[in-house]
Design a protein around this nucleic acid. Structure first.
Lengths: 348, 348
DNA sequence: CTGTTAGCGCCTTCAG
DNA sequence: CTGAAGGCGCTAACAG
C-alpha cells in the first residue's frame, strides 16, 4: 500500500538503483534498453521520486522561503504573486511563513526553515532586522526586503520611502494645500517611520506645522485616524496616508463626515495597490511595481544561491542594496486639475 | 563553515546523538546533567535541526501544499491568508504552487509535491479534476476544493454556485428588472459553468430570455464583455457577473458608456471580495467567507492527515463533501431601495 | 555502460 | 537512563 521507492523500480526493471537514478535525473549515460526498462517500471508502479530524500542527498530543495510580517491586504498578495511567477519560471517552489509581528517570532520562523529551503527572502519592517539575518541564519542565502541596512553588505532591496513621502507632500503643497496632516503606520515599522520622516522633512522645509495621527496600516485604522483629524479644531485641508489601505479609510471617513474629497480635503496614499484606481475619487498615490519587486527579489536570491553553490566568492554585485524609487501617480483624490482620467478597466 | 549537525552537538556535549535527539524532540527521558550539557552545546554551536533530514526519518514534513490555478485577484489572496492562519495555529507551513491552467500542468505540480508535503489542497476548477487526485496522488491525503465530485468519496469542499447564482438573478427579477444579462467566466472553469447554469435556470423559470457574454474572471474581461452588451440593440437593464472582479469591470464599462448604475443598469457580482464594498456604487454580491473557507480546508486536511497517520480506517465523516452556501449581500449596485448604508471602514 | 557502496542528517528500536 | 546501529529514499563517486 505504500508508495513505490526507487528500489522497487530497480527491482522490477531488473537493474540497479543507480541506473534508475540516472535515467530519472538525466545525469550520466544509460544504454537505450536499460532506459526503456526503467521507464516502463516507473510507469507500471506510477513511481514518483521522493523530493525530500532527493533534497537530503543533493542538499538542495528547490524551494525558497518567504518570511513576512503579515498577509493582509493587497500589498502582500501582489508581492507573493510576483514571487510565485519568478519561482515557477525557475522550477522552484515557494513556502510562505507570515504573521511575524516581533523579531523573536520571525527569528523562530527563520530557524524553522533550515533544511527546508535553499534561501530566504525576509521582509522584516522591524527595527531589529539586521541582527535577525546575521545571527540567525547559519550561512543560508538571504535577501532582505524593506529592512534596515545595518551591516550594509547584506543583499537587500528597499523602497525609497522617505523620498516618496516627500514627493507626495510637496505635490500637495504645490497644489496650494497648507494644512497637511499625516496618518502614519505602526511606530515599530521601519517603513512607516521613513514615510513619516519624509513627511516631516517636506513640511519643515515648507515652513508649515506638522499634524500627526497614528494608524496601523489598515483601512480601519486609517478611518479612525482621519475621524480624529477631522474632529480637531484645526481641520487639515489635505491628508497624506502612510499606505493605500489607510488612505482608503481616510476617504471613507471624509465621506462619512459629510465632507468632499478633494474639494475640502485632498488625500494621497502610498503603494498604488490595485484598489487605488478603483475607489472614488481615484486615489493619488506613490506607485510601486509590487509584483515586479517580488519577482526581482526571487531572481536576486536565486543568483545568490547559485553563487553560493558554485562557491564563487559571492559576486560583488550580489551584496548590493537595490533601491526602488516610487513614482507619483496623480488621480482625483489630490485635487490636481488633470484631465479627468477615465478608468481603463485594463487591470487583469 | 558548514552548519552544525547533530553529531557535532553530540561530540561537543560528550554524549551520543541519540541523547541529543531525545532532548531536542522531547521524546524519551533524559537525566538532568545530560540534558543541560546538550542544551549548552546546542547553544554554543547555534545548532538548528535540519528539518529535511528529520522529515525523511519521521516521514512527516509539517508542511501542506496548495495547488491553485492562479494567484490573481483578491479571492486567492484571501483564501491563502485563511490557510496560512490555520497552518500557523497548528505549527505547519504552507507551500503554494499556482498557475496551473490545464490539468496536465496541475498533475505535474501535484507529483512534484511528493516527499515535500504531508497533504494537499487542490483547487482545480477544471473539468477533469477527479482524475487528477485519484490517479496522481499515491495515497497522499488530499482535499479538493471547488472541483468536480466525480467519485463522491473524496474529501472536498465546494461553493453552491448554482444556487447562489439563482438567488442573484431572482433578486434582480424581484426588483423589476426584466432584461438580465450574464457575464460568464472561462468555459473550462467548473465554477463558471455552475454559476452560468444557475443564471439560466432562474431566467428560464422567469420565462425570460437569456443574454450571455463571455469573460475570463478578470476585471478587464468584464469591462470588455459589458461594453459588448451595452452596444447591443437590446440593451440589458441588469447584469449578473460571474465574479466580483468582472463585476467591477462591468461597473466601469457602464460608467464609461455614460450610463448610470443602478438606475439604468443594475449589477450583481459573486464572491464579496474586500473591494466589493469599496467601489461606487457598492457592489451587491454573493458573500463567501473566503478566508474562513481556507482555514476550514486546512483544518479538514489536517484531520485527514492525522487519521491517515493513526491508520484509523479514515473516519467516515472525513470523506464528506462540504457545501458552502453563499449569502446575498445587498449594496447599491442592484438598485434595491435599502436605507443607504454608509461604509463601516471596519475592514482590517 | 552498470552495479556497489557510502553517505545526506536525523530518529528510533534495541540492548546494555 | 544511555549508546550503538539500522534505516528513511535518493544521489554520487568509484570500481568493474
Amino acid at each position: 500500500m505504500k508508495a513505490a521507492t526507487i528500489r522497487d523500480v530497480a527491482e522490477r526493471a531488473g537493474v540497479s538503483v543507480a541506473s534508475v537514478s540516472r535515467v530519472l535525473t538525466g545525469a550520466g549515460v544509460v544504454a537505450e534498453p536499460t532506459r526503456s526498462k526503467v521507464l516502463e517500471a516507473v510507469e507500471a508502479l506510477s513511481y514518483v521520486p521522493h523530493s525530500g530524500a532527493r533534497s537530503l542527498s543533493t542538499s538542495r530543495t528547490d524551494v525558497i522561503g518567504v518570511i513576512l510580517p503579515d498577509l493582509f491586504g493587497e500589498f502582500f498578495s501582489e508581492l507573493i504573486r510576483g514571487m510565485d511567477v519568478a519561482c515557477r519560471a525557475q522550477g522552484r517552489h515557494l513556502i510562505v511563513s507570515s504573521s511575524h509581528d516581533d523579531a523573536a517570532n520571525a527569528a523562530a520562523a527563520i530557524r524553522s526553515m533550515r533544511g527546508r529551503v535553499d534561501g530566504l527572502i525576509v521582509l522584516s519592517p522591524h527595527l531589529d532586522s539586521g541582527e535577525l539575518t546575521s545571527s540567525l541564519s547559519g550561512r543560508l542565502p538571504v535577501l532582505l526586503m524593506n529592512g534596515g541596512d545595518l551591516d550594509g553588505q547584506q543583499p537587500s532591496m528597499a523602497v525609497d520611502n522617505t523620498g516618496g513621502a516627500r514627493v507626495a507632500v510637496e505635490h500637495l503643497f504645490s497644489l496650494g494645500r497648507r494644512r497637511i496632516a499625516h496618518v502614519g503606520g505602526p511606530t515599530g515599522n521601519l517603513e512607516a517611520r521613513q514615510r513619516k520622516q519624509g513627511y516631516l522633512d517636506a513640511v519643515a522645509s515648507a515652513g508649515a506645522q506638522p499634524m500627526l495621527a497614528q494608524g496601523e496600516f489598515t483601512q480601519a485604522s486609517g478611518f479612525a485616524a482621519a475621524a480624529r483629524l477631522l474632529a480637531s479644531d484645526q481641520r487639515p485641508d489635505a491628508i497624506f496616508a502612510g499606505n493605500d489601505a489607510m488612505a482608503v479609510g481616510v476617504l471613507l471617513a471624509i465621506q462619512e463626515a459629510g465632507l468632499r474629497c478633494p474639494e475640502d480635503i485632498a488625500v494621497v496614499g502610498f503603494d498604488d495597490v490595485p484598489i487605488a484606481e478603483l475607489v472614488r475619487p481615484g486615489l493619488t498615490t506613490l506607485h510601486i511595481d509590487i509584483a515586479g519587486m517580488g519577482r526581482r527579489a526571487v531572481e536576486r536570491l536565486l543568483t545568490e544561491i547559485d553563487d553560493a553553490a558554485a562557491n564563487s566568492p559571492q559576486a560583488a554585485n550580489d551584496a548590493a542594496r537595490e533601491i526602488i524609487v516610487p513614482r507619483l501617480v496623480v488621480r482625483q483624490s489630490c485635487g490636481a486639475s488633470t484631465s479627468t482620467q477615465g478608468f481603463s478597466g485594463e487591470r487583469p
